[in-house]
Amino acid sequence: MNVIDYFDRARIINIASRKDRRLETEEEFARNGFHIDDEKVGFFKAVTPTEGEGFPSVGVRGCFLSHLGVLEEAMRLDLKNILILEDDIQFSRRISQYGKQAIEALDGMDWDIIYFGHPVETDSSMPTWNVVDQPIHLAHFYAVNGKCFGTLRDFLLQILERPPGHPDGGPMHYDAALNTLIHQNNAIRAYYFTANLGYQRPSRTDLHELSFFDRVSVLRPVIGMLRKLKARNLRRTR
């Protein structure tokens, strides 16, 4: 059993127009021996709204709605849990070893939200699950337990109904929404694995304004190639 197959379902959020990201993610899964069968493990077509509706950008709103969509699908299927990834995932070179340790340690744990990928710097020489005691930025590789589906879904819907700047949390980045729920609700049991098992692969953003190099058509292939080279180098070191 590996960290992907351990869960009832795994969904990879991907915008239909980002065929480049989909292909690179398929290669990333194959490189690490993970199988995408389009049922237990498959892609989720990202929501692509045309208006920001109070969110920092249209892309941020689309990301938020896409994670909500994965959660609602999991509820319709009556799943026990769901693993959620974004299509810029790059796995740690130690994911086979440490991923096995992570899922073995989950047996017997009472958890609601767990992070396999995160930017928290910890001593990972003896990896373990730590309680989330600080904001966890990014939501590219995490899981939600079935008993938390309704609580998280209802909280996200409340955010959609609130105006920007609402004291309880209005439209925001999805990772910030998870952090807000964990902070506001002491009953939520959230953990992160101290050995970071997944990073964001260097890739053109869909959430923010494009850089100069991505806006200029003649430069776009060059910056794309440089990102691929960077990703290849990073696979050797993290």
Rank of each mutant, 00 (worst) to 15 (best):
P119N: 05
A139G: 08
A177H: 06
I136F: 04
I114M: 01
D123P: 12
L152E: 03
H137Y: 09
K147F: 10
P135F: 11
D168V: 12
H173M: 08
G150A: 07
I159F: 11
G170I: 06
Y142F: 14
V120I: 13
H173D: 11
W129K: 00
N145A: 15
P127M: 03
S125K: 00
P164G: 00
P171R: 12
A139M: 04
I159D: 08
R162E: 01
H118M: 02
P127I: 01
F155W: 12
H118S: 04
I113H: 10
G170F: 10
P171N: 05
V144S: 03
G165P: 03
L156E: 12
M172S: 14
H118K: 02
S125P: 00
M172L: 13
P167F: 03
P163R: 12
A177Q: 07
H166Y: 05
V144A: 09
Y174S: 09
E161T: 01
D154P: 07
S125M: 12
Y115T: 03
T128F: 04
D123H: 08
Y115A: 10
M172F: 13
V132L: 09
V131I: 10
V120G: 03
I113C: 02
L160Y: 01
G170L: 01
P163I: 07
R162M: 02
K147V: 10
V144K: 12
G170N: 07
I113T: 13
A177I: 09
M126I: 09
P135C: 07
G146F: 00
F116V: 08
T122G: 02
V131M: 07
T151L: 15
L178C: 06
E161F: 03
M126R: 15
T151G: 14
M172H: 08
L152R: 05
S124K: 11
